[in-house]
């Protein structure tokens, strides 16, 4: 074996034994590239992402801080974690010990078969298997490891973007995920976790709706009734958008023709011709041609990321722009 291979062997890796239905690498996402048609991507549940990183001593900051416009590419975008949709994940620590923490949707966590704490730093020794079971509520678990998952960054971020196909592919069995330099969390150790600041998955999802650019595209009566409408989260929801179903369609005024494509933001509520609102999440397209009736503030989107299909949804229109 060559010296290079020896070094490679010494490197810490998590080997994927069971990938779960959809597990992706995510960090704070890509910034400064929307004008090139590149979605932001990044963890859907921001607080859970940051909490998982904090528990293992990682930095979650995605701030490009002080760079010139368009040069944010290549800047750090926070430590990368795994976003496991509905859990069901098994990973083996190879090449060294690691601190891990699982946050987000509650799920049983085991190391070599023994139950360990959720939402707390846990030591996984080299050779041991970390298992995250099926979520008991919510949708997305976050698995952080000290040093972060060090897959190759693309345009300044390690996030998988499922719309544009950028970044690492979703996890598959046999994949080996390299870890960054081990942290210094040993001093903290298990039991140091504070109480999780995360709200549980919502029984009813209430999303504030701040003013959007194309309210005038909708019938006034239909628009006025929006605050009273009841929807449910559609099973067709994904990282691109939370789709609302089982509620009244938002009717467009007639004779408006087609809207030329315009820039879209995180949380924009787009209304396609069928009238069923779609709340844009991290992998949303950067431009779109359906009218945006309003925008859900970023602070409300973590709950949206954890709302399982069938969850009742209400929109709460507000005139305020200072949420």
């Amino acid at each position: 074996m060559t010296e290079g291979q020896e070094r490679l062997r010494a490197r810490r890796v998590f080997e994927v034994l069971r990938p779960g239905p959809l597990t992706t690498v995510q960090d704070a996402g890509r910034r400064g590239v929307a004008a090139l048609g590149v979605p932001r991507a990044g963890a859907l549940d921001g607080p859970a992402y940051r909490w998982a990183n904090a528990l293992v001593g990682n930095d979650s900051s995605g701030a490009a801080g002080g760079s010139a416009p368009g040069t944010a590419v290549g800047a750090a975008s926070g430590a990368a974690v795994l976003e496991a949709t509905t859990g069901n994940l098994a990973l083996r620590a190879v090449g060294g010990d690691a601190w891990i923490a699982v946050t987000g949707a509650p799920a049983p966590v085991r190391v070599d078969g023994r139950p360990v704490a959720w939402c707390a730093p846990v030591r996984v020794r080299a050779g041991e298997v970390l298992e995250v079971g099926a979520v008991t509520a919510g949708v997305r678990c976050y698995v952080a490891v000290d040093g972060g998952f060090e897959v190759a960054p693309v345009l300044g971020s390690r996030s998988a973007d499922l719309l544009a196909g950028l970044g690492p592919a979703p996890l598959s069995a046999g994949m080996r995920l390299p870890l960054g330099a081990p942290g210094t969390l040993g001093a903290l150790g298990p039991g140091s976790a504070e109480r999780s600041p995360l709200a549980g998955p919502p029984a009813e999802l209430v999303l504030r709706l701040t003013p959007g650019p194309r309210r005038d595209w909708f019938e006034p009566e239909s628009l006025a009734a929006l605050g009273r409408a009841r929807y449910r989260v559609s099973p067709a929801s994904n990282r691109v958008g939370l789709r609302l179903a089982d509620g009244p369609p938002l009717r467009r005024r007639e004779g408006l023709g087609e809207l030329p494509s315009e820039g879209m933001v995180l949380g924009a509520v787009q209304v396609p011709p069928d009238g069923m609102p779609v709340v844009f999440l991290a992998d949303h397209p950067t431009t779109g041609g359906y009218p945006v009736v309003g925008v859900v503030p970023e602070a409300d989107l973590a709950a949206a990321a954890q709302a399982a299909p069938g969850t009742p949804v209400r929109l709460l229109p507000t005139a305020r722009l200072d949420v």
Binding site: G267, V295, E298, L321
Partner: peptide, 8 residues
């Protein structure tokens, strides 16, 4: 307006 953090 495009929500609290953006405009068109």
């Amino acid at each position: 307006p495009m929500g609290a953090r953006a405009l068109l």
